[in-house]
Design a protein around this nucleic acid. Sequence first.
DNA 1: GTTAGTACTAACTTTTAGAAAGTACAACCA
DNA 2: TGGTTGTACTTTCTAAAAGTTAGTACTAAC
Lengths: 135, 135
Amino acid sequence: MEDQATIAGDEHGQIIFDVFARGCPSRETMEHITSRWGILAMAALGEGTYRFNALRRRVDGVSEKMLAQTLQALERDGLVHREAQATIPPKVEYSLTPLGREASRRLLDLIEWLEGEMPQVMAARERQDGGPTGG
Amino acid sequence: MEDQATIAGDEHGQIIFDVFARGCPSRETMEHITSRWGILAMAALGEGTYRFNALRRRVDGVSEKMLAQTLQALERDGLVHREAQATIPPKVEYSLTPLGREASRRLLDLIEWLEGEMPQVMAARERQDGGPTGG
DNA sequence: GTTAGTACTAACTTTTAGAAAGTACAACCA
DNA sequence: TGGTTGTACTTTCTAAAAGTTAGTACTAAC
């Protein structure tokens, strides 16, 4: 056995996904959701529908290439819905699917918790940076 | 104004953190937590204390370099506690701080939800990959 | 005395991200 | 009439990050 098991089946023939297993597809989707821009796109779309460039302005700092790439991955995984109007110039609306909304809720929970705890993080950094070697 | 505001103060002089703002420190910490290996390290440490190499075996596929780098970032942010025994060979134990445990709970919630919904993700992928152009 | 294991770091290569420009077209302004 | 702006991207090139491999200093086991 050279390779690790990636997806295992249980006694009822159901597939079991495990992010700890190298090569499990759940790891890939997790990376789409929690990537640098994925998490912000998902959180923003939790607020409602956005057009491509509006989303780009909301997700401060993302490049067009990375936003397009990120949205394509999320769309493929069934988390984001893309609706293009065949007008000129083209207008494309992005929104969350029901599955995406569930993910977004959990990401927002993490984001809001983190933003609230950041003072503690900053304090820890100061302790670490000046701390052990500083004495 | 060339640069976006990164951290704003409210009327009580409190600092407000916003992951949507480019350059806000909360974004950096978010990336440590949700990075490819960060999320898995945090989730694993949610199960209990691990030594470096044991953690490496648990987080299938991570290199020594990336695990060390990831743990250092999480330690600096006050999420992970590192305790080294000055023995030979050295033994280093990693565990979560109270702050880290709160983060881990939220990550685990996301992980477990995703693993359960993966069949839906796989179905969406099949629809997308074969779908619109396949007809 | 050879092999394996401890927790890393450093040098090097490969992959990915980011920046900038290109595309095709129309609406706006003068 | 014609230049500018805006749409949603893709392509090309460069910079940064991740991954691979080897090295360290030492011991316990075989």
